[in-house]
Amino acid sequence: MNTAQSQDLSKHHWEDRLILLLTEDLENEDFTNQLQELEMGLKELEDRKVVVYQVYQHQMKVGFAEDAQWTTATNLYKKYDEKDSPFEFYLIGLDGKIKLKDYNCISLDKILDLIDSMPMRKDKIRSKS
């Protein structure tokens, strides 16, 4: 995967919701706890069209696969990194706008509830009924 493609989040616009997990340290407690929290709800996240990006300094990988390759992500890290925080969580909606930003681990229930309260998700739920 080349660098330009790996950092182009616009390919997800109107297709996927994104969770970006930024960390300065792969052993950061909030980062590792957040990964565990998200892994418990893989089916629910997939149903809600959520793609998870792990961003470690100037590298990134998509999803949770142990064998997934880290690729260069300089621009992605620069765009979202807040210098005074060792961990950052972003939920980005289908429209490409940040819906939630936090510096702590967020519960899976809170994430799912927030997504389920979004207008496009409500429409999808209604159309299934």
Rank of each mutant, 00 (worst) to 15 (best):
M1P: 10
V52W: 04
D47E: 15
S127D: 14
K11T: 06
E37F: 09
G96A: 09
K79N: 01
F89K: 09
K110S: 15
L91R: 05
E82C: 06
Y53P: 01
K110T: 14
K128L: 12
R48Q: 13
T71K: 01
A73Q: 01
A4Q: 05
N75L: 03
E37K: 06
D67C: 08
L20G: 00
L108Q: 13
K79V: 07
I92P: 07
K49W: 14
H58V: 03
L42E: 15
S85R: 02
L91S: 10
I125H: 11
K78D: 11
S85I: 05
I98L: 02
L108S: 09
K61M: 08
N28A: 02
L18S: 06
S6M: 00
E29A: 05
L9V: 03
L112K: 13
E82F: 02
I106P: 03
L35T: 07
V55P: 01
H58E: 11
Y53F: 09
R17T: 07
T72C: 05
A4P: 04
L108W: 05
H12D: 14
I92Y: 02
Y90F: 14
Q57R: 06
L94E: 06
E39I: 09
E88M: 13
M40P: 03
W14P: 02
D16T: 11
Q36V: 05
N33P: 02
M118Q: 13
L18V: 08
N104D: 14
E46W: 11
N104P: 10
M118N: 06
E82Q: 09
Q54D: 07
Q69C: 03
I115M: 15
T3A: 03
K79F: 01
M60Y: 00
K101R: 11
I106D: 09
T32N: 01
L42F: 05
N104L: 12
H12R: 07
Y77V: 04
L112S: 14
K99P: 06
Y56P: 03
R126L: 13
D102R: 09
C105W: 05
H13Y: 11
R48F: 13
M120E: 08
D81A: 12
I92M: 08
D116A: 11
Q5H: 05
Y103C: 04
D95I: 10
D81W: 11
Q5C: 00
S107T: 15
D123H: 12
S117N: 15
Y90L: 09
R17Q: 07
R126T: 12
L22S: 05
D84V: 11
R17Y: 03
V62C: 11
K110M: 13
H12N: 10
F87T: 00
T71W: 00
I106H: 07
S127W: 04
L112Q: 14
E29K: 04
L21V: 01
M120W: 05
E24C: 01
D8A: 03
D123Q: 15
A68G: 04
Q34T: 02
E27W: 01
L18E: 00
T23F: 00
Y103M: 01
S10I: 00
